[in-house]
């Protein structure tokens, strides 16, 4: 199975195909998000007259809001809703003609985008440490960064399978865009994309602990920031691993039934 390297190369070529979109995504979008978050939390901290909220200083909060948007992009990539749209439009046909496993192909395309955004995260993090954070970069920071990025990649794999599972419902229901949007919202809200999860009530956090959501954004972001303990990281990786197995079985089962429903009609 050597074709996967070429799929990765192909997806990277697609990312690089449009120059202005590339630079806007790579730098512009993140910098704007960072400036807005920094200004907003600066105002909140100064209005409250505190230097720390729920364990977060202003610098930590800034870093959190720097990591989260890129991490979320690592999860969702550019391919969110693609499978559902391809089934709806009938362009999914191409993957049935090629002598390859369509789900391997799709997972590889998801992960290519995740890798691209991982690179973006590393560059933006380096800029943050150089120009915003006053503290020197230590070996332990480096270990946290690498661990966090690796957890993000595992989280991307989980999210890719979860999205595939949801999007395959379009084999029965044609248009399931609302489900895709809901998945995105739940992932951001219960994953810590909107606000750090320790701002949520304790019972909500306890309930979420068995779902994949807290480990998709919050855990890797906190790992990069050096806030996650080894126990939390191990538990998170284990739970993500279990969910990956569950979602893989779900995708297999849905495809086994759903392939009879595919008609290849569309635009």
């Amino acid at each position: 199975m050597n074709w996967w390297k070429h799929v990765v190369a192909m997806e990277l070529r697609k990312i690089l195909a449009y120059r202005s979109d590339f630079w806007i995504t790579f730098l512009g979008q993140t910098l704007i998000q960072l400036l807005v978050a920094r200004a907003l939390w600066q105002m909140i901290f100064s209005t409250q007259g505190v230097s720390e909220m729920n364990g977060f200083t202003l610098d930590m909060m800034t870093l959190y809001y720097l990591i989260v948007p890129i991490g979320t992009r690592m999860l969702t990539g550019e391919n969110i809703g693609f499978l559902a749209r391809e089934i709806y439009e009938g362009t999914f046909t191409r993957y049935l003609l090629y002598p390859l496993n369509v789900f391997q192909y799709k997972t590889i395309t998801y992960l290519t985008y995740s890798l691209f955004y991982a690179l973006q995260l590393l560059i933006i993090y380096a800029l943050f440490r150089t120009f915003i954070s006053a503290s020197p970069f230590t070996l332990s920071d480096g270990a946290n960064l690498v661990s966090g990025v690796l957890i993000f990649l595992l989280a991307s794999m989980t999210y890719a399978l979860m999205a595939l599972l949801i999007e395959m419902i379009s084999l029965w229901a044609d248009n399931i865009w609302s489900l895709v949007v809901m998945l995105r919202f739940f992932t951001s809200f219960f994953g810590g994309g909107f606000i750090p999860l320790n701002f949520l009530p304790a019972w909500t956090q306890a309930t979420l602990a068995w779902t994949p959501f807290p480990y998709l954004i919050s855990l890797p972001a906190r790992t990069i920031m050096g806030l996650a303990t080894l126990d939390e990281i191990s538990k998170g990786i284990l739970i993500l691993g279990v969910w990956i197995l569950v979602f893989m079985q779900g995708v297999k089962l849905l495809w086994k039934k759903g392939q009879y429903k595919y008609t290849g009609v569309g635009i």
Partner: peptide
Amino acid sequence: WWDLPALDSFLLLKEI
């Protein structure tokens, strides 16, 4: 693939 030159698509098909 719509966004790429044909030769890029052909290279992938060569491997597939």
